[in-house]
Amino acid sequence: MHIAIRSLTKSFGRSLALDDVTLNIEPGRIVAVLGGNGAGKTTLLRCLAGVAAPDRGEVLYDGEPFRRDRVDLRQRLFLVPDFPFVYSEMQVLRHVGMVLRLYGADEPGVEERVVELLRDFDMLPLAEAAFGTLSRGQRYKGALSALLAADPEIWMFDEPFASGMDPRGLNAFRRHVSDATARGRTVIFTTQILELAERFADEVCILHHGCVHACGSLAELRTRSDTNTEGVLNEIFEQLHESQP
Protein backbone atom coordinates (compact mmCIF):
# COMPACT_ATOMS: atom_id res chain seq x y z
CA MET A 1 0.00 0.00 0.00
CA HIS A 2 1.41 3.36 -1.02
CA ILE A 3 1.62 5.95 1.75
CA ALA A 4 1.54 9.66 0.99
CA ILE A 5 1.89 12.16 3.80
CA ARG A 6 0.97 15.70 2.79
CA SER A 7 1.93 18.73 4.91
CA LEU A 8 1.22 16.93 8.15
CA THR A 9 1.23 19.30 11.10
CA LYS A 10 0.50 18.40 14.67
CA SER A 11 0.83 20.43 17.83
CA PHE A 12 0.18 19.70 21.48
CA GLY A 13 -0.84 22.95 23.09
CA ARG A 14 1.84 25.46 22.10
CA SER A 15 4.42 22.82 21.29
CA LEU A 16 4.77 21.84 17.63
CA ALA A 17 5.35 18.09 17.31
CA LEU A 18 5.15 17.79 13.51
CA ASP A 19 5.71 20.73 11.22
CA ASP A 20 4.56 20.40 7.61
CA VAL A 21 5.85 16.87 7.10
CA THR A 22 5.60 15.59 3.54
CA LEU A 23 6.69 12.07 2.66
CA ASN A 24 6.06 9.32 0.16
CA ILE A 25 6.60 5.71 1.07
CA GLU A 26 6.45 3.02 -1.58
CA PRO A 27 5.11 -0.45 -0.79
CA GLY A 28 7.56 -3.18 0.13
CA ARG A 29 10.05 -0.84 1.82
CA ILE A 30 11.56 -0.85 5.28
CA VAL A 31 11.64 2.72 6.53
CA ALA A 32 13.53 3.80 9.63
CA VAL A 33 12.33 7.00 11.26
CA LEU A 34 15.15 8.62 13.17
CA GLY A 35 15.48 11.73 15.26
CA GLY A 36 16.38 13.05 18.66
CA ASN A 37 14.10 12.82 21.65
CA GLY A 38 10.97 14.86 21.05
CA ALA A 39 11.65 15.12 17.31
CA GLY A 40 8.16 13.83 16.47
CA LYS A 41 8.87 10.21 15.48
CA THR A 42 6.22 8.64 17.67
CA THR A 43 3.71 11.37 16.83
CA LEU A 44 4.24 10.63 13.14
CA LEU A 45 3.48 6.95 13.69
CA ARG A 46 0.43 7.85 15.79
CA CYS A 47 -0.91 10.09 13.05
CA LEU A 48 -0.34 7.32 10.52
CA ALA A 49 -2.26 4.89 12.74
CA GLY A 50 -5.13 7.30 13.44
CA VAL A 51 -4.38 7.53 17.15
CA ALA A 52 -3.53 11.22 16.95
CA ALA A 53 -5.45 13.54 14.67
CA PRO A 54 -3.34 15.99 12.66
CA ASP A 55 -4.08 19.70 12.92
CA ARG A 56 -3.36 20.18 9.22
CA GLY A 57 -2.42 18.04 6.28
CA GLU A 58 -3.47 14.53 5.45
CA VAL A 59 -2.38 10.95 5.07
CA LEU A 60 -3.31 9.07 1.92
CA TYR A 61 -3.24 5.30 1.72
CA ASP A 62 -3.28 4.21 -1.92
CA GLY A 63 -4.62 7.67 -2.72
CA GLU A 64 -7.51 7.41 -0.27
CA PRO A 65 -7.62 10.02 2.49
CA PHE A 66 -7.19 8.36 5.86
CA ARG A 67 -9.53 9.22 8.70
CA ARG A 68 -9.98 7.50 12.02
CA ASP A 69 -13.41 6.19 11.17
CA ARG A 70 -12.08 4.35 8.09
CA VAL A 71 -12.03 1.00 9.84
CA ASP A 72 -11.43 -0.73 6.51
CA LEU A 73 -8.16 1.18 6.09
CA ARG A 74 -7.19 0.71 9.70
CA GLN A 75 -7.58 -3.05 9.26
CA ARG A 76 -4.80 -2.81 6.68
CA LEU A 77 -2.22 -1.49 9.13
CA PHE A 78 -1.03 -1.91 12.68
CA LEU A 79 1.03 0.01 15.20
CA VAL A 80 3.02 -1.69 17.94
CA PRO A 81 3.87 0.88 20.64
CA ASP A 82 7.05 0.60 22.72
CA PHE A 83 4.96 -1.02 25.46
CA PRO A 84 2.39 -3.13 23.63
CA PHE A 85 -1.23 -2.90 24.69
CA VAL A 86 -2.17 -6.17 26.34
CA TYR A 87 -4.27 -7.06 29.35
CA SER A 88 -2.26 -8.60 32.14
CA GLU A 89 -5.00 -11.12 32.97
CA MET A 90 -5.46 -12.26 29.37
CA GLN A 91 -3.70 -15.33 28.05
CA VAL A 92 -1.38 -14.90 25.08
CA LEU A 93 -3.42 -17.21 22.89
CA ARG A 94 -6.70 -15.50 23.76
CA HIS A 95 -5.11 -12.16 22.85
CA VAL A 96 -3.92 -13.54 19.52
CA GLY A 97 -7.42 -14.83 18.78
CA MET A 98 -9.01 -11.50 19.69
CA VAL A 99 -6.64 -9.49 17.49
CA LEU A 100 -7.14 -11.85 14.56
CA ARG A 101 -10.91 -11.51 14.85
CA LEU A 102 -10.68 -7.71 15.05
CA TYR A 103 -8.56 -7.67 11.90
CA GLY A 104 -10.92 -10.11 10.20
CA ALA A 105 -7.96 -12.42 9.72
CA ASP A 106 -9.44 -15.47 11.44
CA GLU A 107 -9.68 -17.41 8.19
CA PRO A 108 -8.97 -21.17 8.08
CA GLY A 109 -5.28 -21.98 8.10
CA VAL A 110 -4.26 -19.09 10.30
CA GLU A 111 -3.61 -21.57 13.13
CA GLU A 112 -0.47 -22.86 11.42
CA ARG A 113 0.79 -19.34 11.03
CA VAL A 114 0.18 -18.66 14.73
CA VAL A 115 2.06 -21.83 15.68
CA GLU A 116 4.97 -20.82 13.45
CA LEU A 117 5.14 -17.31 14.89
CA LEU A 118 4.92 -18.44 18.50
CA ARG A 119 7.59 -21.04 17.84
CA ASP A 120 9.88 -18.48 16.20
CA PHE A 121 9.51 -16.18 19.18
CA ASP A 122 9.89 -19.01 21.72
CA MET A 123 6.41 -18.33 22.98
CA LEU A 124 4.80 -21.73 22.41
CA PRO A 125 5.26 -22.93 25.99
CA LEU A 126 3.79 -19.65 27.22
CA ALA A 127 0.79 -19.70 24.90
CA GLU A 128 -1.59 -20.17 27.80
CA ALA A 129 0.23 -17.91 30.26
CA ALA A 130 -1.33 -14.63 31.30
CA PHE A 131 0.55 -11.56 30.08
CA GLY A 132 0.86 -10.37 33.65
CA THR A 133 3.23 -13.22 34.44
CA LEU A 134 5.55 -12.55 31.50
CA SER A 135 8.66 -10.42 31.26
CA ARG A 136 8.65 -7.24 29.17
CA GLY A 137 10.30 -8.92 26.19
CA GLN A 138 7.92 -11.89 26.34
CA ARG A 139 4.94 -9.54 26.44
CA TYR A 140 6.27 -7.75 23.38
CA LYS A 141 6.75 -11.02 21.56
CA GLY A 142 3.24 -12.17 22.46
CA ALA A 143 1.67 -8.95 21.19
CA LEU A 144 3.90 -8.98 18.12
CA SER A 145 2.88 -12.54 17.27
CA ALA A 146 -0.77 -11.50 17.27
CA LEU A 147 -0.25 -8.61 14.88
CA LEU A 148 2.16 -10.47 12.62
CA ALA A 149 -0.40 -13.27 12.37
CA ALA A 150 -2.98 -10.71 11.23
CA ASP A 151 -0.45 -9.71 8.53
CA PRO A 152 -1.87 -6.38 7.36
CA GLU A 153 -0.19 -4.34 4.63
CA ILE A 154 1.54 -1.73 6.76
CA TRP A 155 3.52 -2.59 9.86
CA MET A 156 4.53 0.18 12.22
CA PHE A 157 6.76 -0.29 15.24
CA ASP A 158 7.81 2.22 17.85
CA GLU A 159 11.31 1.38 19.07
CA PRO A 160 11.16 -2.37 18.40
CA PHE A 161 14.86 -2.77 19.10
CA ALA A 162 14.42 -1.39 22.60
CA SER A 163 11.51 -3.64 23.39
CA GLY A 164 13.30 -6.06 25.68
CA MET A 165 13.26 -8.93 23.17
CA ASP A 166 16.12 -11.42 23.43
CA PRO A 167 18.62 -11.88 20.54
CA ARG A 168 16.66 -14.85 19.20
CA GLY A 169 13.47 -12.81 19.25
CA LEU A 170 15.17 -9.88 17.51
CA ASN A 171 16.52 -12.20 14.82
CA ALA A 172 13.06 -13.67 14.31
CA PHE A 173 11.63 -10.17 14.12
CA ARG A 174 14.16 -9.15 11.45
CA ARG A 175 13.48 -12.31 9.49
CA HIS A 176 9.70 -11.79 9.54
CA VAL A 177 10.09 -8.15 8.51
CA SER A 178 12.31 -9.12 5.58
CA ASP A 179 9.84 -11.79 4.49
CA ALA A 180 6.99 -9.33 4.81
CA THR A 181 8.62 -6.70 2.61
CA ALA A 182 9.25 -9.43 0.04
CA ARG A 183 5.48 -9.97 0.06
CA GLY A 184 4.92 -6.24 -0.53
CA ARG A 185 4.31 -5.20 3.06
CA THR A 186 5.59 -1.80 4.17
CA VAL A 187 7.43 -1.63 7.47
CA ILE A 188 8.03 1.63 9.33
CA PHE A 189 9.92 1.68 12.57
CA THR A 190 11.53 4.22 14.84
CA THR A 191 14.87 3.68 16.49
CA GLN A 192 17.75 5.48 18.11
CA ILE A 193 20.30 2.87 17.07
CA LEU A 194 21.81 4.37 13.93
CA GLU A 195 23.99 1.39 12.96
CA LEU A 196 20.95 -0.85 13.05
CA ALA A 197 18.91 1.51 10.92
CA GLU A 198 21.76 1.71 8.45
CA ARG A 199 22.01 -2.04 8.09
CA PHE A 200 18.32 -2.96 8.28
CA ALA A 201 16.33 -0.17 6.59
CA ASP A 202 15.86 0.48 2.88
CA GLU A 203 15.04 4.09 3.52
CA VAL A 204 15.71 6.49 6.32
CA CYS A 205 13.72 9.52 7.38
CA ILE A 206 15.35 11.90 9.82
CA LEU A 207 13.08 14.20 11.78
CA HIS A 208 14.34 17.25 13.59
CA HIS A 209 12.07 19.47 15.69
CA GLY A 210 9.06 18.05 13.84
CA CYS A 211 10.43 18.72 10.33
CA VAL A 212 11.85 16.25 7.84
CA HIS A 213 15.56 16.98 7.80
CA ALA A 214 16.56 14.25 5.38
CA CYS A 215 14.78 11.38 3.71
CA GLY A 216 15.77 8.75 1.20
CA SER A 217 17.72 5.59 0.72
CA LEU A 218 21.14 5.30 2.33
CA ALA A 219 22.80 5.62 -1.07
CA GLU A 220 21.01 8.90 -1.65
CA LEU A 221 21.98 10.19 1.77
CA ARG A 222 25.60 9.23 1.18
CA THR A 223 25.59 11.07 -2.13
CA ARG A 224 24.07 14.14 -0.52
CA SER A 225 26.58 14.24 2.30
CA ASP A 226 29.58 13.19 0.16
CA THR A 227 30.31 10.23 2.39
CA ASN A 228 30.90 6.79 1.00
CA THR A 229 31.64 5.06 4.23
CA GLU A 230 29.33 3.51 6.78
CA GLY A 231 28.25 5.81 9.55
CA VAL A 232 26.58 8.35 7.30
CA LEU A 233 23.67 8.65 9.72
CA ASN A 234 26.00 9.37 12.58
CA GLU A 235 27.61 12.08 10.52
CA ILE A 236 24.25 13.63 9.64
CA PHE A 237 23.26 13.71 13.29
CA GLU A 238 26.55 15.32 14.26
CA GLN A 239 26.04 17.97 11.57
CA LEU A 240 22.51 18.50 12.80
CA HIS A 241 23.71 19.09 16.33
CA GLU A 242 26.48 21.45 15.26
CA SER A 243 24.22 23.44 12.92
CA GLN A 244 21.84 24.37 15.73
CA PRO A 245 21.72 28.15 16.15
Binding site: R101, V110, L118, A127, A129, A130
Partner: peptide, 23 residues
Protein backbone atom coordinates in the same frame (compact mmCIF):
# COMPACT_ATOMS: atom_id res chain seq x y z
CA UNK B 1 -0.81 -20.74 39.30
CA UNK B 2 -0.29 -18.55 36.23
CA UNK B 3 3.22 -19.68 35.54
CA UNK B 4 2.14 -23.19 34.62
CA UNK B 5 3.71 -23.84 31.21
CA UNK B 6 2.69 -26.11 28.40
CA UNK B 7 5.13 -28.20 26.42
CA UNK B 8 5.56 -26.93 22.83
CA UNK B 9 3.76 -30.02 21.53
CA UNK B 10 0.78 -29.49 23.83
CA UNK B 11 0.59 -25.84 22.85
CA UNK B 12 0.76 -26.68 19.16
CA UNK B 13 -2.03 -29.22 19.45
CA UNK B 14 -4.09 -26.72 21.36
CA UNK B 15 -3.61 -23.96 18.79
CA UNK B 16 -4.35 -26.20 15.85
CA UNK B 17 -7.80 -26.95 17.27
CA UNK B 18 -8.59 -23.29 16.52
CA UNK B 19 -10.41 -22.87 19.82
CA UNK B 20 -8.63 -19.56 20.47
CA UNK B 21 -10.43 -18.04 17.49
CA UNK B 22 -13.86 -18.81 18.89
CA UNK B 23 -15.77 -16.21 20.92
Amino acid sequence: VDEAQLTPEQAERQILTGAFLEP
